[in-house]
Every structure is written in C-alpha cells, then in structure tokens.
C-alpha cells in the first residue's frame, strides 16, 4: 500500500520533470513547423542543423568559450586555491568571502555589474567580455572544489616530498597537483557545465556581435523556436545522458555522482 503510494507519487514527479523534455524530443522529429501540430515523422531538422549558420555559430561560440574559460579558470583557480590555503587566517577569510560573492549574488547582479564595468571603461562588449565574464564566475567554483582537497591532504605531504629531496617545484608537480587532482577535475567539470549552461551573465556581457546557444534560444523563444534547435538540444541531451551513464557505470561507487 505505502509502496504503491510512493510509486505513484514518484511517477507524477517524474512525469512533471520529463514532460517538457519529451515534448522537445518528439517535436524534433515533427515534420510540421508548428509546435502544436504533429505533421509526421522526419529527420529533416537534424540535417538542417548542419546547414544553419546561425545555430552553428552559436554552438561554436558556446563551446569555444566553455573550453577556454574552463582551462583558464581551472588553472588560475587551482593556483589561487593553493595560495589561499597558505595564507594567514584573516587573509584567507577575506579572500574567500570576496570569492564567494559571484556564487551567492544573483546572476543578474553579477551580469549587470560586469556589463557596467565594461561599458564604463569603454570596452566594447563582445567575445572577449563574455569570455572574461565566464572566467569570473567559474573561478570561484573551481576554488571551492579544490580547497577541500587541499585541506584533506595530510598537511605534511608537501613536507614529506621536500624531506625526500624534492625541490619545491618538483614536489608541486609530482605530489601536490596529483594529490588534489580529483578536486581539480570536478572544478573543471563544474566550470564547463556552468559555462555551457549560462544565459543570464552571457546575456549582459555578450553585446550584439556574439551569440551563444542560450542567447539564441532566448531570442527565438519569443518569436518561435526553430525546430532545428529542438534537434540540437535532443542531440546534446542524449550525449550528456550517455556520458552520465558511462561515468556512473565506471565509478560504480554510488555516493559520488557527478552532477
């Protein structure tokens, strides 16, 4: 009895969660352009996807910015985390509190604040400003992912390497970085997904010359989304799904699901 209630409840919740996704996927195969009408099955939108310049460009910028901002924020964030962990307690608290601002502030505030900075300093909005903005909001997450790993590490690990004759640089390369690698990787993953997914901050810092997928979808949503976008998101969604399944199978650990 109780079990049945639980089942039904979970089914309803999942229906609620998946309804729009199913709609999107179904409509990516819909011959009719209208979003309410089923006009027969087709793969056309998937083929169109490769021809549509606007979407191709948006995808290109989305991925390019995601890759660069992930690389930069992972490197800078890791170095910063290593530095922060060695700072005095007061310094550390101050730096971490400022570092947390973009995490805690609403995205819209971060977005308009950065836009204000760029426009006030006469920097033209575009690719560079959007990239900078992505790096700005990604680094704090990398730091938050790496710091716990540094703290977990036995505080004498670095000393142990020096003790065994390693120079500070060698110890950093061969011991410290490998020891905190899991934190660095999850920081990078967070940075990457945040960048891919971001709309609000990009919206305010991209200007008119560049468009990423989120901005494209937003501008289309009011006029009507091209079914090609449905096709694209179905592709992206299935890719992610497959990746998740693989990761889950591989880790098999249970608790540590990478979101």
């Amino acid at each position: 009895m109780q079990k049945a209630v639980k089942r039904i409840y979970m089914s309803i919740v999942f229906l609620f969660l998946y309804a729009p996704i199913i709609v999107l996927i179904v409509f990516s195969f819909n011959k009719s352009k209208s979003r309410g009408q089923w006009g027969g099955f087709t793969f056309d939108w998937y083929f169109d996807l490769f021809k549509d310049r606007q979407i191709r460009e948006a995808l290109y910028f989305t991925l390019l910015i995601a890759v660069i901002s992930t690389l930069v924020s992972t490197i800078v964030g890791t170095i910063a985390a290593l530095g922060i962990s060695n700072m005095s307690k007061i310094g550390r608290t101050v730096v971490l509190n400022i570092n947390n601002l973009p995490v805690l502030n609403p995205d819209i505030v971060t977005g308009v604040a950065l836009m204000t900075l760029f426009i006030s300093t006469r920097i033209e909005l575009g690719f560079v400003t959007m990239l900078i903005a992505h790096i700005v909001f990604s680094i704090p997450y990398v730091i938050l992912a790496v710091l716990p790993k540094i703290r977990q590490m036995n505080k004498h690990t670095a000393e142990a390497a020096l003790d065994l004759g390693a120079t500070p640089a060698y110890a950093m390369r061969k011991v410290i970085i490998p020891e905190i690698m899991p934190g660095i990787i999850s920081g990078a993953l967070i940075a990457f997904t945040l960048s891919i997914d971001d709309f609000v901050i990009s919206f305010f810092t991209a200007g008119t010359s560049v468009t990423n997928l989120s901005i494209l979808v937003y501008s289309m949503a009011r006029r009507g989304v091209k079914p090609t976008i449905n096709a694209l998101s179905t592709l992206m969604f299935t890719t992610v799904l497959i990746l998740m399944l693989i990761i889950n199978k591989k880790t098999d650990k249970g608790e540590d699901i990478i979101i």
């Binding site: 999942f14 309804a19 729009p20 409509f27 949503a221 998101s233 992206m236 992610v240 249970g254 699901i257």
Partner: peptide
C-alpha cells in the same frame, strides 16, 4: 537509489531556456 537520483538530475542537463520554452508549448 543512484538510478532514481540520476533520473532526477538528468533533466537539468537540458538547457533551462529550452525546458522553459517547452512549457510554453505545453501550456499555451
């Protein structure tokens, strides 16, 4: 548990503007 948790998190992986847009087609 992991399967449930994953099922619960998977929708997040679709761009949230698109999901919101999908609600537009559902609710209009």
């Amino acid at each position: 548990r992991n399967l449930l948790l994953m099922l619960f998190l998977v929708p997040i992986w679709m761009n949230f503007l698109l999901r919101t847009y999908a609600w537009m087609s559902l609710l209009s």
